[in-house]
Each structure stands twice: as structure tokens, then as C-alpha cells.
Write a protein that binds this DNA or RNA. Structure first.
Lengths: 242, 242
DNA sequence: CGTCTGGTTGATCTAGATCAACAGGAGTGG
DNA sequence: CCACTCCTGTTGATCTAGATCAACCAGACG
């Protein structure tokens, strides 16, 4: 019974895969998975690790970082609420190609690779679930890529800021329109495919426009309405083309 | 018996999904699918069409074109030998988001949506096959995207030229190192995320370097060795980072 | 106190976009 | 047949976002 209870606690099963699982498999799934909370700075897994399982982010923010042999590293993408990490490695039986770095306190649900594989064997609907997920990931990657190419740096930066803000807003119910960047400039640059210098200059421009103020890592939205408006334009334009 | 014969003729079944199908399903698959040859200029399907099924390109070259309301259109991507079109539309039950335009004589294998869905129901391994395919597509999209952002226009153009050349080389066994571009400059530009003007200038530079000569749509590799070498650098650099 | 890391600023450079003009076909209509 | 226009491609002049290189600053930390 406690297992079932825990299964309810793990929202990813319900929201992500639950709808394709019958009751019995749902319980099996619940038994196979378990939840854990990670603090900022911890790594969920490391680049080069053998893939031990699949992780579903329930809340918080996780950055995927890729390092090369020369010690250079870049944050490739952010994962948050509802995203699933490592399924490609499990299904393709590869090792992790990057490090999952916890940026803000995160609740993460884990399923061991072997158990997942077993569940996949037994339950074709689960396969369907992952298939759907892969397709979704494919489209988001594509649109993301398109956005990266089309929109200018400022637009992309605003978009990123918004995502980060939303992420903490949901958690903290913060009406102050103030939050702290969970990553350093270098990583922001990497996420946007730019240099830290350019980020600095963009920030200057934004402050000149009176849209946002930056104090170290603290971000203060002086005029939230205008900010949202500016974001919205970008989103409209993006969806219009899709 | 003739059905089985046809099944052998359709290489996509063997190469793409065959390994996850048992003999019986393989035959069902063969019966569900049929092959057709398209001539350049024809459209396999049109943007906005309801998705009638999935297409597997056996040979030839197909361009995916997206048009907007203003009549502007851009070629988003090329599909060739072994690529599968429309599976996202089928599985997601959406309509086609772009037009598949046949660029060179192509053999295409078609499976009706309803039959495919039925087969998918019946055979979880087929789901697995599509899952694998989706994962592959995901990685290629990602690397493609990365390449687009990292490499300069010239490198990307050379890469594209090479792809196009390989495609006809396989068919025609052409030792002359000469071939005709199956698309116009405008589309090349779109594929590379650039303007036609830039393409023109790139071509100039390449001719100055004595790498390639262009006469209208005809491409003449004056120094194939050097060309290949130059491509190779790009590929090495790309794989090193992955 | 030096040293290191993360961030900012300034000067300069460059790839590629943009805008505008023009040239060669390929039709089309008279 | 010529004149007309449309369409693709080329060229030139200019502009701009962003990269690169270099210096510098502030806090952290041994």
C-alpha cells in the first residue's frame, strides 16, 4: 500500500506515462521507481557514466553539460518539470553523453535501466509512451533550433530569462518579480550559443531600455508588463511560422 | 507468393524494420505496403494534406518544403535513401506540415496510415522500430543543428554539395566528378539558412580556390581529392566534438 | 598579500544580411 | 520575328550583429 502511495507522489507516472499504463502496470512502475531530492551543485549523472536508468524531473532545474578533452565545457540545455533524462542512453544502450548538473533544488524520479527494460518488454503501451515522448522531444529540438537560428541574441536571452523566471515562480509564488539566476554568465552564453561578452552587452542594452535590472546574479523586473509583452511578440512570431 | 516477392523488392522493410519483425509480420508488412516511382517535380504529399500514410525513400532525393501564407517558401531539409517521411504525422495524427517535393527520380515505399496503425497495435516490436528511428532522427537533428550553428557557410555548403554528389554517384556510378544540382540557389540558401546572394559569393570563392567549377546548375569537381580532403576536415571536427 | 575566477568594458574585425541594380533565358503574346 | 515580362542568378555597396582580443575590476581564498 505504501508503494501505491508513493506512486501517487511521483507525478511523472501519472502525467507522463500513466495514461498508457493499466492499473497493474502502474503499480509495477511505481515499485520500480523511486524518488530523490537533489540539492544545487550535485550531479545526477556524469558524462561517460554507464547509464544506470532514466530520470524524470518533477520539479527544479537541471542543466546538461558537455565537456571536451581540453577541459572546456558548455551547458547544452536546461531540463525542468516533466522532462525525462537518459532514456536515449537506456534504449540505445549507450553511456551518458553529458553531465546532469542540478541547478536548483530538484525532485527527481528514477527508474533503473534493467527494470525499465523489463517493463518495456512486458508492456508495449509503455513503448508507445516513450515513442510519443521522443516525437515531442524531436519537435521541441527542431523549433528550438529554428529559434536559435532566426531570432537575435536579445530575443533568445529574454526567452531564457522568462523560462528561468517561470521555473522559480511556480515554486516560490514570488510576486516580487525578482529572482536569482541559477547559472553563471558563461553558461547562459553557452545555452544561447554566444559569448559571455555578448551577454554582458545585451544586459546593458536591456538595462538602458529599463526592462530589467541586474545586480550580480539577481534579476529585477522593473516593468514586468513590458517584459511579458516583449516576450509574447517572440512567441507569437514563432508559432505563426510553425 | 508475388506478395513475398514484392516484400523482397522493398528494401526498407529489410533494412529499416525487418530486424524487429518476425516472418509472419514481415509478410503482413509487405502486403500493407507498396512501392511507387516518382519523377522529379512531383509531390509525394502536400503541406496541409491529411496524412494518408508513411513513406520510406528507397532511392532518389526528396526535398521538404514549407510555405507560409504570404507565398514565401523555403526548403527545410533533404531526405534520401532510407529516410522515412510522415511517421510523425501518422503517430501524432496531424496533417503534413510541409510538402515533399521529388527532386530526382525516386523509388518510394508507402504504407497506409490505418494499416500501419493496425500493425503497430499488433506488433510491439514495430513500435520499438519506430522508437529507435525517432531516437536516431533526434540525434541527427541535434548534430545537424549544432553544425548549422558552428561551421561557417562555406563549410556547410561544401557538406551539402558532397551529400548531393554522393546521392547521384551511387545511382549513376559517375566517374566524371560532374553532376547537376537538383535544386535552385534559392533552395540551397534555405537549406543552409542563408541568402541566395551569399551562396553566389561562396561559389565565387570556391571557384577562385580552384576547388569546384559551376556552370549553371552543373557542378564540376576540378580537384576531387582536395575537395574530399576539405570535407573530411569538417567531418572529423564534427565527430570529435560529439 | 598575490593569485584566480567571473564578470565587465573597449577597440577592432568579419561573416553574412540587406538593398539595389542588372544580366541572361524562357515564355508569351502580338 | 520582335518586344515584353517574369524568373533566376549575379554583382556591388553598405550595414550590423556578434566574435575576438585585450585590458581591467572585484570578490574569494589560500
Amino acid at each position: 500500500m505504501s508503494q501505491v502511495c508513493r506512486s501517487r507522489g511521483c507525478s511523472c507516472k501519472a502525467t507522463e506515462w500513466g495514461h498508457v499504463l493499466d492499473e497493474m502496470d502502474c503499480e509495477l512502475f511505481a515499485r520500480a521507481s523511486h524518488e530523490r531530492v537533489y540539492e544545487p551543485g550535485m550531479n545526477i549523472f556524469m558524462q561517460g557514466d554507464n547509464c544506470s536508468g532514466v530520470y524524470c524531473i518533477q520539479s527544479g532545474l537541471v542543466g546538461l553539460r558537455r565537456s571536451d578533452d581540453n577541459g572546456n565545457s558548455a551547458m547544452l540545455r536546461l531540463s525542468q518539470n516533466g522532462d525525462v533524462l537518459g532514456y536515449r542512453a537506456v534504449i540505445g544502450k549507450r553511456q551518458h553523453r553529458n553531465t546532469a548538473e542540478v541547478l536548483t533544488r530538484s525532485r527527481v524520479c528514477f527508474i533503473e535501466a534493467a527494470r525499465l527494460t523489463m517493463l518495456l518488454q512486458r508492456n508495449p503501451n509503455l513503448k508507445e509512451g516513450f515513442l510519443q515522448r521522443a516525437l515531442v522531444d524531436l519537435t521541441t529540438t527542431e523549433t528550438n533550433c529554428a529559434e536559435q537560428m532566426t531570432r537575435g541574441l536579445q530575443a533568445r536571452f529574454l526567452h531564457l530569462l522568462f523560462r528561468l523566471y517561470q521555473n522559480v515562480e511556480a515554486q516560490q509564488d514570488d510576486r516580487e518579480h525578482v529572482f536569482d539566476l541559477p547559472v553563471q554568465r558563461k553558461d547562459i552564453a553557452a545555452l544561447l550559443g554566444a559569448t559571455p561578452e555578448s551577454i554582458s552587452r545585451i544586459i546593458n542594452r536591456l538595462e538602458e531600455q529599463g526592462l530589467v535590472r541586474f545586480v550580480g546574479r539577481r534579476v529585477i523586473f522593473s516593468n514586468m508588463g513590458r517584459f511579458r509583452a516583449k516576450i509574447q511578440i517572440g512567441i507569437e512570431a514563432a508559432t505563426a511560422e510553425a
